[in-house]
Amino acid sequence: MQYEVKILEPTDLWYLQNNINKETNKFYHPTKNIPFVQQVEIRLENSGVVIQKGALHRCVGKLTHGVYKTDNRLRDVWVSLMTEVDYNAPVYKGSGNVYLEPRGKGQFLHYTAIDISEQEQWEFDDGIFQFCSDNVILGTKKLKFRQMAGSSDGRWRIAIKALNGQRARVVTGTSAITKIIEIHRGETVIADYDFVKGFTSGIQEDYRKLGHFGKGGGEGYVWIYEGEGRLLVSENDGMGLG
């Protein structure tokens, strides 16, 4: 599974009809909005992809479509032990191209590809998951009340794990650029905002107040991550830097 994020611009005829000089005003015009569009193209070669619900724009090639499903016994055991609910999503298999719904200017996303080993289980904030290879087990994890109170994720998060003996790939989409960091035992990550967008199963997440009886240093409630594993983080989330 390979993918490419494309930025599509208007045709030459559009520029002509709107009386815009393409050479000098391609990216900005003082009075008219130039409708650039972002679209993800996924290329499959005898492979499969699971995409976010409602994300399909079109697909072309020798492809079959269905609903995500893996070995029932393995799936049911894993879902019952590690998650609360199975995850229902469209899957496309074969050879060809799958195109996701285009996004207009102002709604562009930053995409991050994460390789998942068989020892890892990733948990992602709501809306972060975009698509992944089909050799995975998907489920959802229910958030604690304090986690729900401190975020806009709702009640559930998506949990993803590679099939036994295989490596999988998942692609996330966020409004701000992200990167992967690693922490080890004894290390702690503390953030006063939604800094972490996803983490592996060796990480413990908590949303709690720093200090007691008003002696918290003025920070109030913060996100705290401890343990050992990898985190998907966004340092400039909320800064308006894109």
Rank of each mutant, 00 (worst) to 15 (best):
F129E: 03
I158A: 07
D115K: 06
E123L: 15
H212G: 06
L143T: 09
V37P: 02
S95T: 15
V85D: 15
T174W: 05
A159Y: 00
D192V: 08
D115W: 02
G94C: 08
T188C: 06
S80G: 09
G165K: 15
M82S: 11
R58C: 06
I128L: 14
L109S: 01
T64S: 11
N18W: 05
L241S: 09
L16S: 05
Q204Y: 03
T112H: 14
F145E: 10
E235K: 10
S151Y: 07
N236C: 09
I20Y: 05
V170P: 00
F199M: 02
R230H: 01
R75E: 11
E45Q: 11
K6E: 07
N135K: 03
V222Q: 12
W14I: 10
Q17G: 06
T11A: 07
G211H: 10
H110M: 05
G94F: 11
N18A: 13
I158Q: 11
V77W: 02
Q2A: 02
I203P: 03
K197D: 10
I158K: 13
H57M: 00
V77P: 03
R103H: 12
W122R: 03
Y111G: 04
Y225G: 00
T140V: 10
K209P: 02
R43D: 01
T11D: 08
Q38M: 11
R155P: 14
K69H: 09
F199D: 00
G214R: 08
S117T: 08
N33E: 08
N97Q: 09
V5A: 11
L241Q: 12
E226D: 09
M239C: 10
D126A: 06
V136L: 02
M82R: 14
G154V: 01
K53T: 01
N164G: 13
R185S: 10
F27Y: 15
L44H: 02
G220W: 11
P10S: 07
D134C: 04
Q121E: 15
L56V: 05
I181C: 01
N72R: 04
K197H: 13
E118G: 03
I203V: 01
I42C: 08
G218S: 07
Q147R: 13
V136W: 00
Q107R: 03
I190P: 00
G211C: 12
W14V: 10
A55Q: 13
R208G: 04
S152Q: 10
Q39F: 10
G106H: 08
T112N: 06
G229N: 01
R167E: 15
V91A: 02
P10E: 03
E219M: 14
G127A: 12
V233Q: 00
E123R: 15
N164F: 13
S234I: 08
E84V: 15
G54L: 08
I34F: 06
D126K: 14
W122D: 08
G220C: 08
V50T: 04
W122T: 05
Y207D: 03
T172S: 06
Q39C: 12
I7A: 03
W156N: 08
E41H: 12
